[in-house]
Design a protein around this nucleic acid. Structure first.
Lengths: 214, 214
DNA sequence: CCATATTTGTGAGCCTTCTCACAAATCGCA
DNA sequence: TGCGATTTGTGAGAAGGCTCACAAATATGG
């Protein structure tokens, strides 16, 4: 179905991001074209899966030839919604917050951390990434004045729900939550949760031999 | 199928971890029993899903009554493989590495960071969490002398593959990878990848209106 | 220009996962 | 004890995602 603005499921979106990374790697290596087999291998996905994923959005390859790297990259960026800048406000300037603010992968993809807030008065005024830390009370101000799109929560579990609610009221459109709690927000605001403890537990589950074999 | 050592898929494992968290929260609140509806609501999962997940491992509830919080918690810990200690070696003492070493959720679940290594000589000897940072060359020594189970990679993308290979050769059984690259390791070594950039992109994909509606 | 090799795009079908609905079991109370 | 309310455990079926296999299209080489 050759529709460049087609909708797709979350697993597809994540794989598209992987493909984009793989393509950029190939481009850096000077490659002009690639095949579904090569790119899929690079991403650890089956070739058929890759072709099916891409075909949801259009017909980007040539039979007998493959995919043009230089053309496919901007197409994928467009599909993924990476042609615009996304303004991000970060709540929590602890270890994780600082690491996120410094993470180069964010700005490379057009995610700009426009403000950082923390509830610790001692941290206010200090630098976190490229911006100065503001008081947590200023969360709404920061979101409104910058017209921020996304709120990243890198705060303790007990503080997350309140900050999420305040962020939503101030106009944030999506939340990336690193706190190990389920957030209760309107269904119109998508929440993507990253639970670090859970990742380790899922790995232990495999090591304990409790997974269905692949 | 009432078998307490049954195998299950990865999504099930992740939900079991959520249930455990929810149950611990209920226990802290002094609750003695709960229903599938209540616990599932707490975790953002459907009640039927929760019952089906639990029923794979045994019959833990009483009809007309619910689930005994105090009994189910240790059962879940056992199923998840959390009754033993897991020894973790952390590679990379940058922002993310330090945050992970300090993350309380790890030690609470029996994951002990027994060593931290970094390639920066200036960092060697400094404290990271509760241990001293060692040189990256000592990775194998650290893994072997501590008989470590899990390697966490919190290093730049270009360093990840080499460290993964060395870790596997030194006897690590599983890897938690925060570097944005696909690792090439024997299939006997499970790899759990957490790609922070990808999480933000998946969120942007939703915000850009490209997801199939739920 | 023709034959052979390559590689995409995709329909059909499989397999896994999730949802629905209900019988069976237990509780609470009179 | 008996009856209605509650809640689990689970079979049946729906839904979704993934794999397979192949026709169609393009490249390559003689």
């Amino acid at each position: 179905m050759p529709n460049p603005t087609r909708r797709a499921s979350d697993p597809v979106a994540r794989r598209l991001s992987l493909y984009l990374r793989g393509l950029e790697e190939l481009a850096r290596a000077g490659r002009v074209s690639t095949s579904s087999g090569e790119l899929a291998g690079l991403c650890g996905i089956s070739a058929a899966q890759l072709r099916k994923d891409l075909s949801q959005f259009g017909s980007f390859g040539k039979r007998g030839f493959g995919y043009p790297v230089g053309e496919l990259i901007p197409r994928l960026r467009e599909i993924l919604g990476l042609t615009r800048k996304w303004k991000v406000v970060l709540a929590g300037a602890g270890g994780l917050g600082n690491a996120l603010a410094a993470y180069p992968g964010f700005s490379e993809r057009g995610f700009d951390v426009v403000a950082v807030v923390d509830s610790d008065p001692a941290k206010v005024g200090q630098a976190c990434g490229s911006v100065a830390i503001r008081d947590a009370d200023d969360l709404e101000d920061a979101i409104r004045s910058e017209d921020a799109d996304i709120l990243i929560l890198a705060v303790p579990a007990h503080a997350a729900q309140e900050l999420a609610e305040r962020g939503v009221r101030a106009g944030v459109r999506g939340i990336l939550n690193f706190a190990p709690v389920r957030l209760n927000v309107p269904r119109t605001v998508p929440v993507n949760a990253v639970n670090l403890g859970l990742e380790l537990e899922a790995l232990a589950f495999v090591l304990a031999g409790r997974t269905t074999l692949r």
